[in-house]
Computed example of a mutant assay.
Amino acid sequence: MSESKISTAKAPKPVGLYPHARKVGNLLFLSGVGPRTAGSDATDSAVPGLKLDKNGNYLEFDFEAQCRSVFDNVKVILEESGSSWENLVDVTVFLTNMKRDFHTYNKIYAEYFKDNQPCRTTCEISSLPTPIAIELKCIATIED
Rank of each mutant, 00 (worst) to 15 (best):
M1D: 09
E3Q: 14
E3A: 08
S4Q: 14
K5A: 14
K5L: 14
I6N: 01
I6V: 15
S7R: 12
S7A: 12
A9Y: 06
K10A: 14
K10P: 04
P12F: 04
L17H: 13
Y18Q: 12
Y18S: 12
P19K: 13
H20M: 05
R22N: 05
K23Y: 04
V24L: 13
V24M: 09
G25W: 06
N26E: 15
L27C: 09
F29P: 02
L30S: 00
L30P: 01
S31V: 02
S31H: 04
G32S: 10
G32P: 13
V33T: 11
G34L: 04
G34M: 01
G34N: 08
P35Q: 03
T37G: 09
A38K: 01
A38Q: 01
S40T: 07
A42C: 07
T43Q: 13
D44R: 08
D44C: 11
S45A: 12
V47S: 02
V47R: 01
K51Q: 13
D53S: 04
K54G: 08
K54N: 14
K54H: 11
N55H: 12
N55M: 11
N55K: 14
N55Y: 14
N57E: 13
N57D: 14
N57V: 07
Y58N: 13
Y58S: 11
Y58I: 12
L59S: 07
L59Y: 03
E64Q: 14
Q66L: 09
Q66T: 02
V70M: 08
F71L: 11
F71A: 08
V74R: 00
V76F: 02
I77E: 00
I77N: 00
L78H: 00
E80F: 02
S81Q: 03
G82I: 05
G82K: 03
G82R: 00
G82F: 02
S83G: 07
S83H: 01
W85G: 04
N87G: 07
N87C: 11
L88D: 00
T92Q: 13
V93D: 02
F94Q: 07
F94T: 05
T96Q: 02
M98W: 09
K99R: 10
R100F: 06
R100T: 11
F102L: 10
H103C: 09
T104H: 08
Y109C: 08
A110R: 14
F113T: 08
K114P: 02
D115E: 14
N116G: 10
P118Q: 12
P118F: 10
C119I: 13
T121C: 09
T121G: 07
T122Y: 10
I125S: 05
S127I: 05
T130W: 00
T130I: 11
I132T: 12
A133W: 03
A133D: 07
C138G: 01
C138I: 03
C138R: 05
I142V: 15
